[in-house]
Design a protein around this nucleic acid. Structure first.
Lengths: 204, 204
DNA sequence: GTCTATAGCCAGATAGAC
DNA sequence: GTCTATCTGGCTATAGAC
């Protein structure tokens, strides 16, 4: 039955994604994936050859979720300010849905740089040239203070992504419970955008 | 010979640190540590019992390098502005010396939250209460625009740490080579501080 | 203290029955 | 396609000679 085959493939992929995201490539166990998916371990090999093949599929799939988020800053038609507000506002909900994503990608790429080969030819792989040009334009128009588009791009993603990546650690620096830290993250939906805009727009 | 014993212990620790930082706990191999340290694998067990004990030692040692960096923002007597400038300026060189540190700590804590037990009782474990109070004071004095100390703290470490953590990825978003990205990071030594200060100080 | 040899385990992968 | 049983290799850890 063709549909069942696909169902199972997807169940394995979905579960593998969960396990790889939690434990990373080196820490993940095929048996763990099989158990959580309620299937026999051999079936994973039947459908996906080996651990590495499965991982590469998951890795690309995960990147396909992240890439559009980044591209939103780069490719839509809003002003720089609106881009920042929109991205910052949406990022919180995105993280609620996909908590481990960026930790996973960044870490695996650091541990095993070979994976870049898989990524850089990805159809959605972000390139910030358009954003750089837009920033230059708005600086020339006097909307923004003089700032380099590359630096601004780094500011934006740093202020948004890092507080989630290092959440458990920062939370302890603040000696606060999970609920309080979630509230802090939530208020960053607007706080971060205000902070950036306040720095880069000309005051009257 | 007592001195030789200590020499070897330190050689193992130093090498173990290197390997754990590169590969993480799950990816590190005892054989790899032995080979790079030019000693017999059994010796590691003789000196440090097992992999886990060795890892915990390394982990705490690594955290002892990071903690003072964070505490610099929190505990010295400079104004908020000077703290930001100083930390931001020094962080680049710190990263040149210890490139994998924060990735390692943050990732291991995400994969295995149990390690927090080892950390939270660490004598240098940072607590940002003093910084919060200082920010509140400077806001009341009109030096800073109204801003929450916790949010500002998160801004500062995000803008500094993340660009290094995600360096390989961001570099490719920019389609630039390593040298260019290093230049970008280097100019952030002052750029980031200006960016923050520009947002949080009152304009004349 | 340092080595060799190996025990013992566990994980990924495969053979082969059904 | 799905299962059981098993192989194979790799890794941690230890026993024991020197």
């Amino acid at each position: 039955m063709q549909t069942k085959r696909i169902e199972i493939e997807e169940k394995i992929l979905k579960t593998a994604k969960k396990v790889f995201l939690e434990k990373g490539m080196a820490g993940a166990r095929m048996q763990d994936i099989a158990d959580r998916a309620n299937i026999n371990k051999s079936l994973i090999h039947y459908y996906f050859k080996d651990k590495h093949s499965l991982f590469k599929l998951v890795f690309n799939q995960v990147f396909s979720i992240i890439a559009p988020q980044i591209n939103e800053i780069i490719n839509n038609d809003f002003s720089v300010e609106d881009k920042i507000r929109k991205f910052t506002y949406n990022y919180y909900d995105f993280r609620q849905e996909h908590p481990h994503l960026s930790n996973f990608v960044i870490n695996e790429l650091n541990v095993n740089p070979d994976f870049f080969e898989t990524l850089t030819c990805h159809p959605l792989f972000p390139n910030i040239d358009k954003f750089k040009a837009q920033v230059r334009r708005e600086v020339n128009q006097g909307i923004l203070v003089p700032i380099d588009g590359e630096q601004l791009f780094i500011h934006i993603i740093s202020l948004n992504i890092f507080p989630f990546m290092a959440a458990p650690l920062i939370q302890r620096f603040m000696d606060s419970d999970n609920k309080h830290y979630q509230a802090i993250l939530n208020s960053r939906k607007t706080e971060v955008a205000d902070f950036i805009i306040n720095s880069i727009t000309r005051k009257i």
